[in-house]
Amino acid sequence: MSTSTSSLRPSRWRYLPLVLVAIVFIFPLEFMIMSSLKPSQQLLSDTNSFRAFLPVGSISLDNYYAAFARAPVGLFLFNSVFITATTVVLALFLCSISAFSFVFLQWRGRDTILTILLTTLVIPIEIIAVPLLLLVNQLPWVGLHGLTFGWLNSYQVQIIPFSADALSVFLFVQYFKDLPKELIEAARIEGASWWQIYYKVIMPLAGPVTATAAILKFLAMYNQFLWPLMVTQAEQYRPVMIGLQYFFQLNIAWGEVMAYLTLITVPVLIFYLVLQRAFIASIASTGIKG
């Protein structure tokens, strides 16, 4: 039985559609970055031709300087990264441990509560935003100023309401259900506590689903607009998406808009690149699509 080497080598033409798809995905980013380097007038006139994707004409970093002058870009980036990172860490812990409880522990009402929890998947934030606002406006908090009531204009109001969500619990539940039960049984026989099983047995095996949940949560949090709009009247707590509105004046400086968009895209790209392998592994193993 012989197989020619050429038949095993993938045909070059197989890559053609992949390259085309890649171009479709890359071009908006390319346009954004190139536009961020051009004066607004040139940017607008270049949109009529392929020049929009090329670093041609008057190229400079002026839009970046102007963007930093127009808005506290560094503050907005810090706020978003801090709020998002804290929420992601909290959500991964809370959702995975609750999923662990739903899958591996026996307790009364477990399935009913899981069903109720999953029904919240279909309730959008817009529906609960006003009741949630009224609720957080009354809640107590102990901070640097002692005991205060009302969470508006704070980090916690942007973190705690989103520190657990049904989608992440669902992802962990589905993943945990596929893990072999023998692992748990063996650990129990060895005398491991439930906490030890969660921490030392289950979570080390949950890398792909953790990456998936982390990326989905990261994107949802980083792109938040409505909730921060409602709860942050003080500039010092505003995240990047509210900051984007600073650039939409009567005469829009599109170059600065593109510079700002480029800057706020960087954390997302870094986060995705770091977790890329685990994310792909998760999609391959569970069929979950983001």
Partner: peptide, 9 residues
């Protein structure tokens, strides 16, 4: 406040 977000705020 940014104008586009002002009324909702």
């Amino acid at each position: 406040f940014p104008q586009a977000a002002y009324n909702d705020s």
